[in-house]
Computed example of a mutant assay.
Amino acid sequence: MNKILLKIRKRILRAIDKHQLTKYQANYFYQKSLKKHLLSLPTLPPYHSNLLRIINKEGVAITTLDKLGITSSSDIFTSAQSLMFKISQNTSYDPNQFVIHATPQQIIEYQEIFLWGLDQDLLNLIENFLGLPVAYQGIYFRRDIANQLEIGSRLWHIDQEDRKVLKIIIYLNDVNEDNGPFQYIPKYLTSEIEQSLQYRTGYVRDNVMQGVTSSEVYKSCTGIAKTVIIADTSSIFHRGKPPINTDRFTIFYDYTSRRHKQAFHGTSILAYSDLHILSKNLSEKQKRCIFW
């Protein structure tokens, strides 16, 4: 499908999605699905249960790779450091560019990074948050450039892909206030600000945000390498604060339910054939998270 037809298709789907009857029906079936799946939710260990409680209350929980207890974490951090070195060698970028992503070929080369996001213990935590079977939208391996540009995801926004969106962010280098921490506004304040701004979708500049709230309410997620941030990005205003001193290196893992509110929002950077190669040794349950 060419780009023009794809844009037309997306415009039509958005118009349908916003229609009152469509919204009513979608919400009815969503609530019905939640009730049906409630008894199928997997049991969580105490530490993951506590993380879930914090996410539901605050919108964000902060932990570390070690505390999270995923068995392959040491392997992926070693691989991530190798990939980080390769991406850091890239100096031929546009001065108006604020982020460099690992290529699909690099993700396939370091496939253990992609596969970490399909660890069954991790999927169990995410399924309990969503209340529904998990759709793994894939990953972004990012180098955020220290150029102080305020564009794209460095502006305040709320993710719209689904009713609930969970992102897991792993810091690959130490992140302080001056090199691009993930920032958010707590859940209880976000709803008030949404009303003040009459926010529906899109990006909000920081000077506009400070017109309706104080920057003192901003929460900066700082931490050393291996810090893990688990964020309900569909319920909080959030952004990546522009780095000042040094580049920030992160991995973003994206998840929604399989009852995708807007199915045209798929985020995977990998081709279908690549996903088949990566999934060859996965369980059927894990595969369904990719090919939903």
Rank of each mutant, 00 (worst) to 15 (best):
Arg9Ser: 03
Ile16Asn: 07
Ile16Arg: 10
Ala26Glu: 09
Gln31Ser: 07
Gln31His: 11
Ser33Val: 11
His37Val: 14
Pro42Val: 13
Pro42Trp: 09
Leu44Lys: 05
Ser49Asn: 10
Ile55Met: 09
Val60Cys: 02
Val60Gln: 02
Leu65Val: 13
Leu68Gly: 02
Ser74Glu: 06
Ser79Val: 03
Leu83His: 04
Met84Val: 10
Phe98Asp: 10
Ile100Lys: 00
Ala102Glu: 11
Gln106Met: 13
Gly117Phe: 01
Asn124Thr: 14
Gly131Phe: 12
Pro133Glu: 11
Ile145Cys: 03
Asn147Met: 08
Gln148Lys: 03
Glu150Ala: 13
Arg154Leu: 01
Asp162Ser: 07
Lys167Ser: 05
Tyr171Cys: 10
Val175Phe: 01
Asn176Gln: 12
Asp178His: 15
Pro181Leu: 05
Leu197Phe: 08
Gln198Glu: 02
Thr201Met: 02
Asp206Leu: 06
Val212Gly: 00
Ser215Val: 11
Glu216Lys: 15
Tyr218Cys: 11
Lys219Glu: 08
Ser220Arg: 11
Gly223Ile: 09
Lys226Phe: 12
Ile229Pro: 03
Ile229Lys: 00
His238Lys: 13
Arg239Gly: 00
Lys241Ala: 13
Lys241Met: 09
Ile244Leu: 15
Asn245His: 11
Arg258Gly: 09
Arg259Gln: 01
Arg259Lys: 11
Lys261Ile: 02
Ile269Asp: 05
Ala271Gly: 03
Ser283Ile: 10
Gln286Pro: 02
Lys287Tyr: 02
Phe291Lys: 07
